[in-house]
Design a protein around this nucleic acid. Structure first.
Length: 218
DNA sequence: ACCCAGGTGGCCC
DNA sequence: GGGCCACATGGG
């Protein structure tokens, strides 16, 4: 894959806009970003839906919640003791250090904000970048397991560690949050539909640029 | 019954 | 800096 924009157009043409992130507010995106770690989005919806139903899906609501209560809410997403603790830590940080003001928190140098997110327990690169892109609207490219797997299948001489993949896209695309938003969502869609299930290449929109397809260099 | 899901952090070498 | 491992529920 030498032109990420070409791949983007193929994906957008095949799948259409994905309308990510599936969450209403920046805070909901943050909660979802932590809960979706190694979990199916369906299960995240169960947890977020219950919080929303009870009117507790906000910084104050979770900050004042007892840990066992939060554990009960996030249980469907797996790793629930760990996630409850970590989500509580993130919320406590936002509540105590930023008085719950997400706009103030995000309205600074993006590199600084990213470092602060990464310093929080339970927030790694993908989660931090998902928050920056989908909650704060910053043009930060999100790399996940699907992205890595897809690049691996497409072939090429690029390194597959997080930073290399992120740099690869960032250096070859316009710095556009809307583009990065849609691109990552499309890669997840492609990964779910074609690089996960058994008949891997049947109907894949990237056959023309894939080393396992007809037009690739492989 | 088995495998996987939009990772992360700790430990070891 | 890379290779394992625990963390845990719900759906195919």
């Amino acid at each position: 894959m030498d032109d990420p924009m070409k791949v983007y157009k193929l994906l957008l043409d095949a799948f259409g806009p994905q309308h990510w992130w599936p969450g209403d507010s920046p805070f909901e995106v943050i909660v979802g970003a932590i809960l979706t770690q190694q979990a199916a989005w369906r299960n995240v919806e169960l947890a977020i839906g219950a919080l929303k139903r009870d009117g507790r899906l906000d910084i104050e609501g979770i900050h004042l919640m007892k840990l066992p209560t939060l554990e009960r809410y996030v249980r469907p997403t797996g790793f629930y003791r760990q996630k409850a603790r970590r989500l509580r830590g993130v919320v406590r940080y936002l509540a105590t250090e930023w008085d719950g003001d997400l706009d103030a928190f995000f309205s600074r140098d993006v590199g600084i904000v990213r470092d602060e997110l990464l310093a929080l327990d339970g927030v790694g690169k993908e989660t931090a970048d998902s928050i920056l892109l989908y909650a704060a609207g910053k043009p930060i490219f999100v790399v996940d397991a699907y992205t890595r797997r897809i690049l691996e299948r497409l072939g090429g001489d690029i390194e597959l560690d997080y930073d290399s993949i992120q740099d690869y896209f960032t250096e070859r695309l316009p710095l556009d949050a809307g583009l990065f938003n849609e691109y990552h969502a499309l890669l997840v869609k492609l990964g779910k539909d074609h690089c996960r299930t058994k008949p891997v290449c049947e109907g894949c929109p990237l056959l023309s640029v894939c080393e396992f397809g007809g037009g690739g260099r492989g």
